[in-house]
Nucleic acid binder design. Structure first.
Lengths: 347, 347
DNA sequence: CTGAAAGCGCTTACAG
DNA sequence: CTGAAAGCGCTTACAG
């Protein structure tokens, strides 16, 4: 009942011996070096093939000074948006021969900073970062020490000159709120994360712009900020809106977790979306369309963000001197059953 | 407007020079080698600290023959279950100094096999695998060539003697179906993935066991298998159940994607869960509890599966000779509003 | 207890 | 066009 002995890993030296040439020639032949005779190439390829030779990536990386590895820090991979981004990035990077080292910062700036350093120590060629805040001193210090390129996701770090991919949150929220105002809503609420990050600032901007364009003033206390995100804080923020006197007739939740908080709050208050309070969630999670009534959303393409981030990084690795690029990705309001004519407009 | 010159990476040689000792002594001091004098240790630590020395992981890995890196192949990280598993595994592995190289097989056996090889070439110390099938020849061949340990998630590969973590799907489905039968349902449907994987076989087993224990026979055609998963196939499988004559009074969906398929099918047929047809979904996604009525689920702990897989792998890396372990994780039926007394029992 | 040497598995100037 | 040598940045037997 012994395990069969598995063959040892084949090294370049063994290929060289079988082919009757020098290891350096094997390397050149396998790496498509121009100055290799046809005969040499054939002998080497045959020997490599026969032995099933696979070059050791670690050794190549050490010698070449390039690892074809990208570090990816997300706040929490179990949040669907981030999972989508990572999926998009992974596929795009893979097509260029890169692999992803993934870590979760769990929204802790200390971990974020630590992982930036750890990943650099692991010789990643670059980083893709979904940071928690735009002002954590630890993270900023780690970024200043960083000696490889980084692409930022949905954040802006003034003074850092990094490539970035951001969503045009303002446009989607503006369209959603404009639609609500057109439907007669006069008291629309907005729940966002801390205004210390770009995404929340942009959503607020879209919200205000829609009001401005409609010649209307937002209700007092219409915008609620969740300082540090947690499910509990999201729920409480939503409850505080629902419990306002008068309460809003429609509420926009800044992302899917805030959306879950809002729906939980509705549930606790025995209210229904689209009937008692109109609802928009900024993120299109598939189940939202299957609720009753289906929930209107501001949609964004997570995978595309990942794909674009990967492309920016690959470009940056090819040309360190090009000016940093910020790509803006669209968001789109999709009205569904949870938004409609205001029933209690002006309550 | 020049960028400030960032300091070059510090190497062991520079630490040695500053401390006035040999590089080998620096290495020993930093790696807590027993035979190092207190004075040597102090000088080296001071010099390393002063220069901000961080050993090059690639070089250490190559020399030590160990990379503290684990390869993780998931079918699709954007599926919440897998995201949860990866999160759990990442945290557990990180606490042991391991990082994760993540790849998505996209359910394609050819990619799965390729990534097993690629990850091995990248010198991972071990693999955690969420495979598509239990019988893909490419994958099995790649696994036979594999020279590092692997932990299997929710799959069984006879003849491979691998560590594995699996869910006790049968128990949760059995409890769910038993509950439905007790409530008077006499025609319960089950949608599962291909029976060629353990998870589906176990769910079917739980389904049959509940009937057996109740002394009842499952309705003809009660179990529908989705051969190769796709959203479309999931929808069609659910529709075929709903369109049966007579239709089931309750349906159990084998996982969250099949659940989405089922809910979409209900939507298309203008039926409501818990009112027209009772519904159980095997996976607790947070929005399911917020639907109206809330959906009964068979819950499992994705993060725990990741944590346990990581622990098994770490143990295996410490002791290659211990017998392979299969850890079984519980699943739990949580009744909610989408299941209740059969209204059309026996229709 | 410390240092000099060898070596992990490659690649790449450098001769020839 | 090919081979011998050096070197990527470390660690670890081996002397002393």
């Amino acid at each position: 009942m012994e395990r069969p002995d598995r063959p040892q890993t084949i090294k370049i030296k063994q290929v060289a011996e079988l082919a009757g040439v020098a290891p350096s020639s094997v390397s050149r032949a396998l790496n498509d070096h121009p100055d290799v005779s046809a005969e040499m190439r054939a002998r080497v390829l045959a020997a490599a093939e026969r032995l099933g030779y696979q070059p050791n990536f670690l050794a190549q990386s050490l010698r070449r000074g390039v690892s074809r590895t990208v570090g990816f820090i997300v706040r929490d991979i179990s949040i669907p948006l981030f999972a989508g981004i990572v999926k998009g990035a992974e596929q795009a990077l893979e097509s260029h021969g890169y692999s992803i080292l993934l870590t979760n910062s769990l929204r802790e700036p200390a971990l974020e900073a630590k992982y930036i350093t750890v990943l650099e120590q692991r010789s990643v060629d670059g980083l893709i970062l979904s940071l928690q805040s735009e002002s954590s001193p630890d993270t900023l210090a780690a970024l200043r020490r960083l000696r490889v390129p980084a692409v930022l996701l949905d954040r802006e770090l003034p003074g850092f000159d990094l490539d970035a991919v951001v969503f045009d949150h303002a446009a989607g929220v503006r369209d959603a709120v404009a639609s609500l105002l057109r439907l007669g809503h006069r008291h629309v609420g907005l729940v966002v994360d801390s205004a210390r990050i770009r995404a929340s600032r942009e959503r607020r901007r879209g919200f205000l712009r829609a009001h401005e364009e409609a010649g209307l003033a937002p209700a007092a206390g219409a915008i609620v900020e969740v300082g540090v995100f947690s499910p509990r804080a999201a729920l409480e923020a939503a409850l505080s809106l629902l419990d306002a006197k008068p309460p809003p007739t429609a509420i926009v939740a800044g992302d899917s977790q805030l959306g879950v908080g809002l729906l939980t709050a509705l549930h606790e208050r025995r209210l229904r979306q689209g009937i008692d309070v109109d609802v928009v969630v900024c993120d299109d999670v598939d189940l939202l369309a299957l609720m009753d009534p289906p929930i209107s959303v501001v949609q964004r393409d997570a995978e595309e963000m990942g794909t674009v981030a990967a492309q920016l990084l690959v470009k940056r690795l090819a040309d360190a001197t090009a000016p940093p690029m910020v790509t803006v990705l669209p968001t789109r309001f999709i009205p569904r059953g949870s938004t409609g004519p205001a029933k209690r407009a002006g309550t």
